[in-house]
């Protein structure tokens, strides 16, 4: 069996925060924010005049309002901004109605389309959000407006949480899972179970047969990629194709997905996990501008 260090939390992905060093919010006119309270992670993003100023990404706790507050406080840390300085905030994600300081809640599907459009550029037509607990396929136009969507939130196969379970089983840190799964000389057949629980039992069996960790991970990553491909077939894939959410950081899944679909993945230098919060911040800005225009 794989050796697992006692007490280690291999599933714990790196929480992060970032401030744009080249910007000062005091120079800007409109400070808008978005908070994406997901089932597994919460992100807060702050934009100044439509440019990303700072963000944070952390784990969602058992209390959604508190998670939203914590993420926003962390994003604003060291910037001198307070929640009261934000002109408009939009909440999104599965806990969107629980963001105490948000003026409006908008569905995460619309926010991911808008955020993906900002992150990957207006050429993106298909966005796949591989989140912690669900998977969404979205078609959008050049302005990031949703044209069609499909969501799978009934089954954990193809989600970040499924990957966390595997990281834990194999004792490989979640940040390294993707790279490690690519270190196989030959692609093993994918695990046959789509259900995370049964896939885990199947993987335990493979380890017992003496499969090395990277081979088991390769089998799981390709099963996850295949599972998502069958979901995408329903709405079709129009290039450019981009992936958002935590799994977008896992090349073991994304490379296999791109190969199976025969498409090239759009690239970004931004953190793919913040797409939802970014979209929410863009909506907040648009709503605020609409409001002050109405007052004039």
């Amino acid at each position: 069996m794989a050796e697992v260090e006692k007490g280690a939390e291999y599933w714990r992905w790196t929480e992060s925060r970032w401030t744009n060093p080249e910007m000062d919010w005091k120079d800007g006119e409109v400070v808008s924010a978005g908070v994406d309270v997901g089932s597994v992670s919460t992100q807060a993003a702050v934009m100044v005049d439509g440019k990303l100023y700072c963000y944070s990404s952390m784990r969602t706790g058992s209390n959604s309002p508190e998670s939203a507050n914590n993420a926003m406080k962390w994003a604003l840390e060291g910037t001198g901004l307070t929640i009261d300085d934000l002109h408009a905030t939009v909440g999104t994600g599965y806990g969107r109605v629980n963001v105490p300081f948000a003026a409006k809640a908008i569905t995460e599907i619309a926010c991911h389309a808008r955020g993906g459009n900002f992150m990957y550029g207006p050429g993106v037509r298909t966005i796949l959000d591989m989140g912690g607990q669900d998977c969404k396929a979205i078609h959008c136009d050049e302005r990031g407006k949703v044209k069609a969507f499909l969501m799978n939130d009934k089954c954990a196969a193809g989600t970040g949480r499924g990957m966390e379970v595997f990281a834990d089983l194999l004792g490989v840190h979640i940040n390294d899972v993707g790279e490690m799964s690519l270190q196989v000389e030959e692609e093993p057949p994918p695990v046959s179970s789509t259900c995370v629980v049964f896939a885990k039992s199947e993987a335990s069996g493979l380890l017992r047969q003496g499969w090395p960790k990277e081979k088991v991970l390769a089998a799981y990553c390709s099963a996850m990629a295949h599972r998502v491909v069958t979901l995408l077939e329903r709405i079709g894939v129009e290039p450019e194709f981009a992936i958002t959410g935590g799994i977008a950081k896992n090349p073991g899944v994304t490379n296999r997905l791109a190969d199976e679909l025969g498409v090239k993945l759009a690239k970004t230098d931004m953190d793919t996990q913040i797409a939802g919060a970014l979209g929410a911040a863009l909506f907040a800005r648009a709503l605020y501008l609409k409001k002050i225009k109405g007052k004039k």
């Binding site: 044209k147 069609a148 969507f149 499909l150 969501m151 799978n152 009934k154 789509t194 979901l231 329903r234």
Partner: peptide, 16 residues
């Protein structure tokens, strides 16, 4: 916009 509600599982595709 086309909204697809439903799911896909081992027994088939069920979307409205």
């Amino acid at each position: 916009m086309i909204a697809n509600y439903g799911y896909k599982d081992g027994s088939g595709d069920f979307f409205i």
